[in-house]
Simulated scan of single mutants.
Amino acid sequence: MIEISEVSKAYGAGKARFMALNNVSVSVAQNEFFTLLGPSGCGKTTLLRVIAGFVDPTEGTVTMDGDNLLALPPHRRPVNTVFQNYALFPHLTVRQNIAFGLEMLGKPKTEITDTVEEMMALVQMEGMADRQTSQISGGQQQRVALARALAPKPKVLLLDEPLSALDFKLRKSMQIELKRLQTETGITFIFVTHDQEEALTMSDRIAVMHAGSIR
């Protein structure tokens, strides 16, 4: 589904030149839970941001279903991202946060209402629709962020260490929850983590990264 071919990303020039990504090539299949595993600074988040469109590669190509993904701006790509800090809107309710992306896409109100209800059921957040996101726990915020990202039904969901802020017990339960969501929705997940056990718990395949390349 996604073909990443000879992608490099360099910052700086001369002796200060730093290769965040160094000739990375990898394929991700449809409906796969694919994990990028490695220590901080190995390039996994940079690769995720290249797919999302937040970083332009210095070299290489990225295609999705055969189409050139790099030619599209981030908001035109069939991709959504769940960030490490969730990036929820604190002045909006749970319902409004989940509906936000659908509203930006100009979806009909009835479709938005139905989709929001469907997403709240999917992440088991029924009954909390009208709470402010500042009034719910970290684990619940995580679920809202997932629901918001899944609502527009992207082809690919990118997850940048979304469980790192949770305590141990909650992180364990959310690992199972994430795998369930991926199986139920049929959406391709590309997950970034430095936690080997986390990667082994959820993934169909794991790419181990080090110093900007897949080892």
Results as ranks from 00 to 15, higher is better:
Phe83Gly: 03
Arg76Gly: 00
Ile4Met: 03
Arg76Met: 10
Pro108Asp: 09
Ala10Met: 08
Glu103Asp: 15
Met64Glu: 15
Glu117Leu: 07
Asp114Ile: 13
Asn68Met: 13
Asp130Lys: 07
Met120Cys: 14
Thr133His: 00
Glu32Gly: 03
Ile136His: 09
Val144His: 03
Glu198Arg: 04
Arg171Tyr: 08
Gly106Tyr: 14
Arg143Ser: 12
Leu72Arg: 14
Phe54Cys: 05
Glu161Pro: 02
Val7Gln: 06
Gly127Gln: 08
Thr113Glu: 15
Ala29Pro: 00
Gly139Trp: 03
Leu157Arg: 01
Thr110Met: 05
Asp195Tyr: 13
Lys155Glu: 08
Leu72Val: 10
Lys172Thr: 14
Met120Pro: 02
Asp67His: 14
Leu72Ala: 10
Ser173Gly: 05
Thr183Tyr: 12
Pro152Asp: 00
Asn97Lys: 05
Ala87Pro: 06
Ala211Trp: 06
Ser134Cys: 00
Leu158Lys: 08
Thr185Lys: 06
Gly138Arg: 12
Asp130Val: 07
Phe100Cys: 01
Gln124Lys: 11
Thr113Gln: 12
Met125His: 01
Thr93Glu: 05
Phe89Thr: 07
Glu6Leu: 05
Ser40Thr: 13
Leu166Ser: 10
Gly53Phe: 10
Met128Phe: 15
Val94Cys: 00
Ala165Ser: 10
Gln84Met: 05
Ala165Tyr: 02
His75Ser: 12
Leu178Lys: 00
Leu37Val: 13
Met209Cys: 03
Met128Ser: 14
Gln96Lys: 14
His75Arg: 15
Pro39Ile: 11
Gly43Asp: 04
Thr93Leu: 11
Met202Phe: 03
Asp65Phe: 10
Ala87Tyr: 13
Pro73Glu: 09
Gly106Glu: 10
Leu36Asn: 02
Gln182Pro: 06
Arg95Val: 01
Val79Gly: 04
Gln124Met: 04
Thr188Ile: 12
Val123Asn: 03
Leu47Trp: 01
Phe89Arg: 09
Ala199His: 01
Thr61Trp: 02
Gln96Tyr: 01
Lys9Val: 14
Leu163Asp: 03
Met64Tyr: 15
Asp167Gly: 14
Thr188Glu: 07
Arg131Phe: 08
Lys169Thr: 10
Gln175Val: 14
Phe33Met: 11
Gln84Arg: 12
Phe189Leu: 14
Lys9Ile: 11
Ser137Ile: 14
Glu59Lys: 11
Ala129Met: 08
Met174Asp: 00
Val208Lys: 13
Thr185His: 04
Leu200Val: 06
Gln140Val: 08
Arg95Glu: 11
Glu198Met: 06
Met104Cys: 08
